[in-house]
Simulated assay, not measured.
Amino acid sequence: MKIFLNSLKVLGLIFLSLICNMAPIFLLSRQDSFSQPVQWLLGLLYIVFIACVLYALWTFHKKHESDAIKQQTIRGADLGIALLFWLGMRIIAVVGTVANQLYSGQETTANDAALQSLTSFFADGFFLYTFLYVFLIGIIAPIIEELAYRAFPEHLLFKGRSRLLAGFVTTIVFALPHSTNIIEFFTYAGIGALLYLAYQRRGNIRDSILVHILNNLPSAIFLFFMRF
């Protein structure tokens, strides 16, 4: 029964991460329907919502983190290793993109295409929504997704169990909502596997969060400057 309830908790956290990601998309796509006061109100409410989510998730995570891991810092060597993981993710992404073009004729994955399509709302849109969307992609989403897809499954489902099993399950769960065909699935599974390895190298979720931010932030900055 406990494993079933913990599985529901993990699924709930993954669903929560999807809601956090979808909210700015909804605000951007419907921004013309809102008056300026309502735009500001909804934007500020989203900021408060995200702040509460981050605080609650991080507080829960810290309760399960050992004192040894809490005392770890990210040193120069750790940053170098994070860059190597990032490079591996970029190689997987490039190979996956080429394979997806050959398989489906799409120039990019459906997930990336959906993100890029929202830039059409940037030019004359509400600046706060654009900033929130870009900040979400570059910083917030990596933090929430690493907690939801890797840290919390480890705390609630796989603690003391096989790391191979944990890596396999969490990689599949990470790939499923990011993909629409088999090539995209294996692409995101490869990326998810590297993120899991980054996490398990020291057992510190900050390592995989750093790698995830390194992967997302350049694209987020690029999207932001497409506004101008």
Rank of each mutant, 00 (worst) to 15 (best):
I3F: 02
L5E: 09
N6G: 06
S7F: 12
S7M: 04
V10G: 00
L11T: 07
G12C: 04
L13M: 12
L18C: 08
I19G: 13
P24W: 01
I25E: 09
I25C: 10
L27W: 02
L28E: 05
L28G: 02
R30S: 14
Q31D: 11
D32T: 10
D32C: 04
D32P: 06
S33C: 02
F34H: 09
S35I: 00
Q36I: 10
P37R: 06
P37E: 08
W40K: 10
L41Y: 12
L44W: 15
L45A: 14
Y46I: 07
I47T: 11
I47D: 15
I50A: 05
A51G: 14
V53E: 07
V53S: 14
Y55D: 09
T59C: 01
F60N: 09
K62W: 02
E65I: 06
Q71S: 11
Q72D: 02
T73L: 12
A77Q: 15
L79C: 12
L79P: 15
L84K: 15
L84C: 13
L84A: 14
F85T: 12
G88E: 02
I92K: 04
A93E: 08
G96C: 01
T97W: 02
N100T: 03
N100A: 06
G105N: 12
N111P: 00
D112K: 13
A114F: 15
Q116T: 10
Q116E: 14
S117D: 15
L118C: 12
T119H: 14
A123Q: 15
D124K: 15
L128A: 09
Y129L: 09
Y129K: 05
T130R: 04
F131M: 12
I139K: 06
I139T: 10
I140N: 02
L147S: 05
Y149E: 00
A151V: 00
F152C: 02
P153L: 08
P153M: 10
P153H: 07
P153Q: 02
P153K: 09
H155N: 11
H155Q: 15
F158R: 07
K159Q: 11
R161P: 01
L164P: 05
A166V: 06
G167F: 07
G167A: 12
T170V: 10
T171A: 13
T171C: 10
T171K: 00
I172N: 06
A175C: 09
L176I: 13
P177K: 01
N181G: 05
I183T: 05
F185S: 01
F186E: 00
A189C: 03
I191C: 03
L194R: 03
Y196V: 13
Y199W: 14
R201Q: 10
G203V: 04
G203M: 10
G203L: 07
L210Q: 00
V211Y: 02
N215L: 08
N216S: 05
L217W: 05
L217S: 05
P218S: 08
P218C: 09
P218M: 13
A220G: 10
I221Q: 03
F222I: 11
